[in-house]
Design a protein around this nucleic acid. Structure first.
Lengths: 126, 126
DNA sequence: CTAATGTATTATATTTAATAATACAGTTAA
DNA sequence: TTAACTGTATTATTAAATATAATACATTAG
């Protein structure tokens, strides 16, 4: 799962961030569960620790993990009180994405199908 | 509408590409309608012509415009026969986006609201 | 012919991405 | 206390992406 794709020309720290986020939103990683240390993951992916650090820093800024010095980094529990930092951006992206699909004449039914499928099985994948 | 945002740290050619795509999917620009020449738009945005060229090249690769040497660049009519180059990617992005929203406990109703709104008014904005 | 078009090339400077090598501060366990 | 592991920060260096600049060429329209 944690394997880099070098044909993907997005920055490594971004790829890594997305992969970990996927593990979180699919429930593979549970709230307060520890994720690999910066140095561990760097070695596992044969990548510089600074690159992992950058990914973790961004994940923390987006509210998906939290880090404690000398202890490790952990999956952030979902905050029901405050609105999530990513919420507004995600809703805008959704609107944009749907609008583009509609322009390409993708049937509404197909779009709804995807939305329902995700919510039905409680997340990603199938 | 065609105004660059220098707080946005995405590359200029990408910002420009997205802005033109927005004009297309909102119907402001109609099929086969001519868009500004590379040099015109470069001057309008006070940006290098090569940067516009890059944006147009990407837009053409994604099937949103076509260019004819010595004539200009134009909005591509939607092809009903072949599947659009962007379709598969857009559907995957949609699934991912919805999954992340669900993880953040965004109600299904809110997501459906956005989808319906876009399809109802026939595109973006409101 | 002239002017405008898309397209291509080469060069240069700036910014970003990634690596490398350390260092510091705090925790945990021996 | 010590050793090993954490997150975090800094500085330096290299490589890649971005953007500008200056041309040039082929084609079309007037």
């Amino acid at each position: 799962m944690l394997q880099l794709d070098y044909r993907d020309r997005r920055p490594l720290h971004e790829q890594i961030k997305e992969k970990i986020k996927t593990l979180i939103i699919t429930g593979v990683l549970q709230p307060d569960e520890r994720i690999p240390s910066v140095r561990e993951l760097a070695q596992l992916l044969t990548v510089n620790p600074n690159t992992i650090q950058r990914a973790y820093k961004d994940l923390e800024a987006e509210g998906f993990i939290y880090s404690i010095r000398a202890k490790g980094s952990f999956v952030a529990p979902r905050e029901r009180s405050a609105p999530h930092p990513r919420r507004e951006e995600l809703l805008q992206q959704l609107e944009r994405n749907v609008a583009e699909l509609m322009y390409l004449e993708e049937p509404l039914e197909q779009v709804l199908e995807i939305v329902y499928a995700v919510y039905k099985k409680g997340g990603l994948n199938g």
